[in-house]
Design a protein around this nucleic acid. Structure first.
Length: 338
DNA sequence: AAACAGTGCAACCGCTCTGAC
DNA sequence: TGTCAGAGCGGTTGCACTGTT
């Protein structure tokens, strides 16, 4: 059957609106109010489709439209609302005064989505996707988080060669950026190969055996670090999430958990909250990972942390990346993410 | 300096959904 | 119950701008 088109396409103008067209539309709506979009173009003297007029008004000309960049608070709110509402852009826009659904959708697709992907977060489910993790964010030469603990945490994800490359990379840190780039590229390629391998061999987790691991450590660790130091660091970082890890002499364990376990999540949240320095991280952790929203989104202390000295986009990006430098519980079944 | 590639954004398209009549 | 207009959504396009080679 099909519906008749909303307007006769013939002879109607498309593309960017001119100032004159905007003026006509604004004057008409101010006089007659919005609505009757189908008849509006004719009455307002516009060679435009009614739908185009409606979109132009609602997305650009409305007096309450807020132009300009999204603030960190707005971005945070969008992420929180998206985790609860999904792609309900109009519902999200309703909670962001002055922002339109189209604007939020565009901003999501061009900024937030890419950022989440870079951080290894699935933008659809708001869960961590280890296969999406951008290693460069974890092994960033400029980051104070560049350390073996990150690499060690990744040991359950990487094959030994990849880890060896990473360790080599760390030992070259601050020496030669070109070499670093090459190594980083190799490392990422290696991870991709490893992931591909896992897809074909679900039951063969690419764990590094304890002796392999220690060999790698002994071979590649800068001389000022000893294995015991590394173990201490691991224990300190992993805390009681890694009890099995320690008891089994560095042998990682897996469970049958099919998703990131809630008890781990809650426990991590609780532990983080005990340490004031982690509180802002804790809140932002909430906002990006998918958790049911039991209360309206609250602009959290992360924004307070950002305000002031850390206000540039780069710094914001850096901060956001840092938010996810938390530990990966060994109870996580990585196969579900690969 | 020019060519090229990448990015961001406004705008559009086609479709579905919803509510009024 | 069917039709219609408005609203909403996902995807896409075109263009301006910027960075890189």
């Amino acid at each position: 059957m099909g519906r008749s088109p909303c307007c006769d396409k013939n002879g109607l103008k498309k593309g960017p609106w001119t100032q004159e067209e905007d003026t006509k539309l604004i004057q008409y709506v101010q006089t007659n109010g919005p609505g009757n979009w189908r008849s509006l173009p004719k009455n307002a003297g516009l060679q435009r489709c009614g739908k185009s007029c409606r979109l132009r008004w609602t997305n650009y000309l409305r007096p309450d439209i807020k132009r300009g960049r999204f603030s960190f608070e707005e971005e945070e709110t969008i992420i929180q609302l998206h985790s609860a509402l999904g792609n309900k852009w109009s519902a999200i826009a309703a909670r962001l005064p002055g922002r339109t659904d189209n604007e939020i959708k565009n901003y999501w697709n061009t900024h937030i989505r890419k950022r989440l992907l870079r951080m290894g977060i699935d933008p659809v489910t708001h869960t961590r996707r280890l296969d999406l993790l951008d290693l460069s964010s974890l092994i960033n030469n400029n980051s104070p988080q560049l350390n073996l603990s990150n690499l060690i945490r990744l040991q359950t994800l990487l094959n030994p060669d990849a880890l060896r490359l990473a360790l080599s990379l760390s030992s070259l840190n601050n020496n030669n950026n070109q070499n670093t780039e090459v190594l980083l590229q190799n490392l990422q390629e290696n991870q991709l190969l490893n992931n591909s391998h896992q897809l074909q061999n679900h039951h063969q987790a690419p764990f590094i055996q304890p002796n392999q691991f220690e060999n790698i450590i002994n071979q590649q660790i800068p001389s000022n670090l000893t294995t015991s130091l590394i173990q201490n660091q691991m224990q300190g970082n992993m805390g009681h999430y890694s009890t099995n890890f320690q008891e089994n002499n560095l042998t990682p364990t897996t469970t049958t958990a099919t998703t990131f376990p809630n008890y781990c999540y809650d426990q991590m949240k609780g532990d983080l909250s005990e340490n004031s320095s982690f509180q802002s991280m804790n809140n932002s952790f909430d906002s990006v990972l998918s958790t049911p929203m039991s209360s309206p989104p609250q602009l959290n202390s992360a924004s307070a942390l950002i305000n002031g000295s850390t206000s540039t986009e780069d710094e914001r990006n850096s901060f956001c990346s840092d938010l996810f430098k938390f530990e990966i519980p060994e109870s996580l079944n990585f196969d579900d993410f690969m």
